[in-house]
């Protein structure tokens, strides 16, 4: 993983997008996450809102904006469930913050870096979810390690492809 020195960090620019992209892409991700499992039940293993959160957080390289975007995406996801609102909001806020912090320190344009990053952020999302549901809410939740590993691998693979597609939406400087 290529670490950036101070000079490179200073030279590094935030990637810019059209303001509508910040609204439409997360909305499309949440919509597909809610709609596609109807036709393809196995699609539920994917977490498109998480992929989008990580992408915009590392692209903007601003922890606060990554955290706010993650909070918005997470709360919208929560609103579609019948569970208390805030579970995904907390998860995505933490992931967005950490992803933006990582984006400030490493080269996130490398596909290998993206693959590893998505893998670990998916696992982190699962662990935080387990903690919130079991400890904060005192609700039952089973942990299947193999399932979570498969989920992390699938999200990482899909993330690399989606990141490449979303790169095309960047504004030319």
């Amino acid at each position: 993983m290529a670490l950036l020195n101070n000079k490179a960090r200073e030279e590094m620019d935030q990637h810019h997008f059209h303001p509508a992209v910040f609204f439409l892409i997360p909305l499309a991700a949440i919509f597909l996450q809610a709609y596609l499992p109807l036709r393809f039940p196995r699609f539920a293993v994917l977490d498109l809102p998480l992929v989008v959160t990580v992408y915009f957080a590392v692209s903007r390289r601003n922890p606060i904006s990554g955290m706010l975007l993650g909070t918005g995406i997470g709360l919208t996801q929560d609103a579609l469930t019948h569970l208390p609102i805030g579970i995904n909001g907390i998860l995505k806020a933490i992931v967005g913050y950490l992803a933006a912090s990582v984006g400030m320190r490493i080269d996130v344009d490398n596909p290998g870096t993206r693959l590893l990053m998505m893998f670990f952020f998916t696992l982190l999302d699962s662990l935080l979810h387990l903690f919130i549901v079991r400890r904060l809410l005192d609700m039952p939740m089973e942990w299947h390690g193999l399932h979570e590993m498969i989920r992390a691998v699938v999200n990482a693979l899909v993330g690399v492809i989606l990141f490449a597609m979303l790169d095309r939406l960047r504004k030319r400087e």
Binding site: M67, G86, G89, I90, A93, I94, Y97, S101
Partner: peptide, 22 residues
């Protein structure tokens, strides 16, 4: 510590919201 403080505030608000709902 602006970034960390903002994260704490956002998380605190949501945790309180969760507690109220539950």
């Amino acid at each position: 510590y602006r970034n960390v403080l903002m994260l704490m505030v956002i998380l605190l608000i949501q945790v309180i919201g969760l507690a109220v709902q539950v």
